[in-house]
Nucleic acid binder design. Structure first.
Lengths: 226, 226
DNA sequence: CCAAAAGTGTTCTCGATACACCCATGT
DNA sequence: ACATGGGTGTATCGAGAACACTTTTGG
């Protein structure tokens, strides 16, 4: 293996010592009509759930474990975002970021963690960039994957689904066009049940079709742990 | 920072020692009508250029340096692909992969490295996966970015540009539709010159417009080294 | 009968595709 | 004159966007 010269020999923290590695996960959910991120309290604000991965477990397993330990939640979807190299005090760390998604109503984050609105959360500059990138990725994937599946309960109405799309995309959508596109995409299965909700016509219930792989395109087919 | 428990304390190669990190770069170019990858000889075949990054330099700088050292070439475009966690003998390494692009005719790789056709190169399983993912990314980006810019010399004909698209996409394209789309995309600037090439009508020369950012979408706006 | 959300169709525009012939040059 | 690659236009189709009224229920 090539040792990148000339500086590698001169530093004390290269391959001899190894690198400091930090996994951070952006856990998103749509709650109370807002896009929320799971955050932990911090000296002056909030921070993303983070941790040092185990050397012999795949990185995505580390992302899952750290979510379990900091929030007590088990995500429904996980994908790697990007790897940064950032300054941490006077050292440098390699920061591997993940996007995780959990359906609303699956439970509240544990002791320390809280759901905070993504628009107002007080993160460090790095955490803010990672969060913004996670949101952009999620928005893009709504368009060409079934990733929205992981934001919904098992059964839902088309209006509820549209509300989630509108919250994540931060824009209003036309009801008729939305329904036509969603149904044409063949992701959904219509149920026989309806839900009575208030003093108006009941809504038909749907669920996502079982035979659908919601991972696609941006994420390589092979995952970690090869 | 959360130490992911319980195993982290039990192992000897966690944050105390740090992680083994390996940067690998897929350097692609279109040469002699084929999509080629820069490869280095290996015990039983070929391998991607690789190296251990410097701890205090951004990761993309490490990818650039390792290309310079192994191939002597300076890439025209670089973007991070994905971070894997792979077994290396009995240890695990964190493998950060990059996609790099260089224009044809910029020079031949140095002493050890060679351009090998991507379809037939004898890589390890991991290098093969990284290469395949790099190609998929490049193919996708041809469609919605000006990344093709980096595969072309400064001035070129529309037929040369179409040949590069066809090589990367591994499919034939309709000449009239290709020209209409490319010109409609407003990436190109028509030059006054033409090029006489053989016993046929000379071709008009084009170049890419200066005011174009070829990075977009999949790569976050912020790079490494924050 | 009224309020409130559910549900439904048509028109238009634009981008993508399929497809075949004339043009300028060198030999 | 002919061989060779350069260059052009039109018809069709499908996806996406704009847009308003009827239906069903509870109170």
């Amino acid at each position: 293996m090539t040792r990148i010269s000339p500086l590698a020999q001169a530093t004390g923290s290269d391959a001899d010592g190894g690198f400091a590695v930090d996994v951070r996960t952006v856990l998103l959910s749509v709650i109370d009509g807002g896009l929320k991120v799971a955050a932990l309290p911090d000296a002056d604000g909030w921070q993303l759930p983070r941790g040092v991965p185990l050397p012999s477990l795949p990185l995505d397993a580390a992302a899952r474990m750290l979510l379990a330990e900091t929030t007590g939640l088990q995500e429904d979807y996980l994908e790697q975002l990007y790897t940064l190299h950032v300054r941490d005090g006077d050292a440098w760390i390699i920061l591997i970021s993940y996007l995780a998604i959990i359906a609303a109503g699956t439970g509240s984050p544990g002791t320390e963690a809280t759901w905070i609105d993504t628009r107002s959360v007080g993160f460090s500059e790095v955490d803010r960039m990672v969060l913004d990138y996670a949101i952009v990725r999620l928005q893009a994937k709504l368009g060409y994957t079934t990733i929205a599946f992981h934001l919904m309960p098992e059964r839902f109405t088309l209006t509820e689904l549209q509300d989630v799309y509108e919250t994540v995309l931060a824009m209003a959508l036309d009801k008729r066009n939305f329904r036509r596109r969603i149904l044409a995409a063949n992701m959904l299965e219509q149920l026989d049940e309806t839900r009575r909700d208030g003093s108006h016509r009941p809504a038909r219930l749907y669920r996502f079709r079982a035979d659908h792989d919601p991972r696609a395109f941006l994420t390589p087919q092979w995952a970690d742990g090869v």
